[in-house]
Nucleic acid binder design. Sequence first.
DNA 1: GCGATCAGAT
DNA 2: CACATCTGATCGC
Length: 751
Amino acid sequence: MFTFLPLVPPSNSKYKKETLSLFTSLHSTNLKTPDRLQQDNNTPSLMSKSKNMKTPNPSQFTSISSTIYNDDDDFQDPIPSLPFTQTLTKPTSSIKLKPSNTPINRPSKKPKKTHTLPGKENLITPHEFDLDPDLGLESFEPTVLCNKTEVGEKKKKLTDGFGYLSNSIESRLSLQSRGGCAPSKVDGDLEETGTTQLDVLLDLCYSEEEKEIEDEDVGGVGEIISCPMCGSDISNMSDEMRQVHTNECLDKEPIDIPDNDHVSEPSGQVLDDPPNLASSETHHVSPISIWLQNLGLSRYEEVFIREEIDWDSLKWLTDEDLCKIGVTALGPRKKIVHAISELRTESHEEVNIPEKSAQKESKTVSNKLITDFFPGFAGNVKKSCTTGAQAQVGKTNSNNGNKRSGTKMNFSNNKFRDTPSWCSITGTPFRVDAFKYLRRDCFHWFLTHFHADHYGGLTKSFCHGKIYCSLITAKLVNLKIGIPWEKIEVLPLNQKINIAGVDVTCFDANHCPGAVIILFEPPNGKAILHTGDFRFNEDMTKIASLQTRVHTLVLDTTYCDPQYDFPKQEAVIQYVLEAIQAEAFNPKTLFLIGSYTIGKERVFMEVARVLQKKIYVTAAKMRVLECLGMPKEDMQWLTLDERESHIHVVPMWTLANFKRLKHVANMYMGRYSLIVAFSPTGWSFSKGKKSSPGKRWQQGTIIRYEVPYSEHSSFTELKKFVKFISPENIIPSVNNHGSESVRKMVSLLSS
DNA sequence: GCGATCAGAT
DNA sequence: CACATCTGATCGC
């Protein structure tokens, strides 16, 4: 019978000691090394077999691996021009862990900024001039800097083991005890603010402030600065807090937009429908023009003017009409038609809500359920929706029940949609995972982790301020997207820092490498905990900072439904291990383990460690893994030489269906006679069957396992977490299950 | 021609 | 279901 032969003597006690990560504890405590593993080393191993195989020439190697696994895609080399030969010439016989050629140390090259306020860049980047020389700067730069130097020192610590999953004792010890919040200098309603609504007015504020700053560039302070809305003295606030304050006032007191110059600013501001547009009309800017600008289709402005299309008739234009009037290009036409249909939907709803037609009512009710079940949430949403989630359409929204008098436009273009409430951190000038909603009124963009649905919209031309994220995420953002380090601020784990007057603390989210949960403690005293994506574990309840009072919890509700109950990751990995053993009777078996750009590392790393087998990864995947700061003892299990391993890490979609797997099988025809693939996904359980450790499918010589390996919290875990945090409000960050599941969760929680 | 973006697919 | 991503079409520079 075939068994795995250890490639390396299993003397791993050293790194076991060093690695505080769950990874290791998982290995040392939960995962039993399969008995058969240690026995029977008479049987020729696949390994030795593959060593005897004829060595393919380099070009074969490349074409095979890249063709089979679509390496050109996700695990793609970020530098397109990088010649394949570079990969090929890597030593293939002895796998050395090359020093990473990724510029991971570049953050340190970034000169530590000192007090640079009165410099030219203050005029260039608004967020810098925003800093009050006395207060803002004091509260922002020095604090961060101070912490940043610590960050540098901590980097090593953070990345020891899997930095991302260690709520290590070590790091927890360094938790700062949480001081009381500074008394808010703004009025008590501050927290009720949404952040971005009337960018128009904000822009006004900017230009005014810009002038002021230019004037006082030399450091002139002392003037009393009043809120343009309520008139109260906001001189003591940092400029960003002033923005926040002003935004709140704006939300409270909707006003007419006074200046069309700003109305026409195509920076994605939210436009009120007829009323405000009407006011802009008096300044000879038609609402249609603004609307077109927001769609990025200003070039058709002339056409619409020529055809004398007004706001009302716009809503009834058809695709055909557009063709006739000269919008012939398919793309723009589609865009316009889509946007029009949204306009219609919206006005339709406006009409219907009062009528309470059965259908509409049910929609309204279901929309409101979330808020109903979270006392205080409704009010919040309403306000933050004015700037935030209100106009959401499509799959990323639907939790925003309240449509403030339906006066907002929906834009088909994501970029111009309102920032959803779960992206805006009320009471702060921050956004979280909101790169799809880039605006010029914000300069602090937090990224919880490096998954496409969270960094979506972020491109290397990002120029909206700073990106705040964990070290691992920072490396990936730099590697994969090409964001220069100058635009990235690395956040330490388990350590409170101050950004723009707001206390910020990050914790490991137990999701993918680098994923963090972020606690924001704004001056208004209403702490906001943003989970990003996370999987709850009991250790989180031991984090001192989380035992604080949390006002609003922005919660990853991916599996917020009782039907979603899956096993612990350890159990699933154990299942995979056993399945590999069970299938390994055939020495010509190729094992494939699915993976995303990042995520699911634990599955294949544990397989390697427990089975003592090397794992093949593509060069691009290796570069990503090199960002994770895994100890050498772990990295030694990875190889870039596919001949060294019959366990391959492949992009998840390679395993998506048997058709693709057959493709792989064909490519390896003759070399492998059996393919065993593992798809680790949280969705791989049937609704009725709870916690089944995995499903096995077979078609001929291809076996496909779906294993419920989730990096999101199960419903049970969500419950525990919510109970632990006991927030006043919850904002779901995922709306896939709608309000119903949130309602269920809440009712269960309250029982 | 390349990067960005989006809808639709998986 | 929709995880997290891919694909292909289109547009702008």
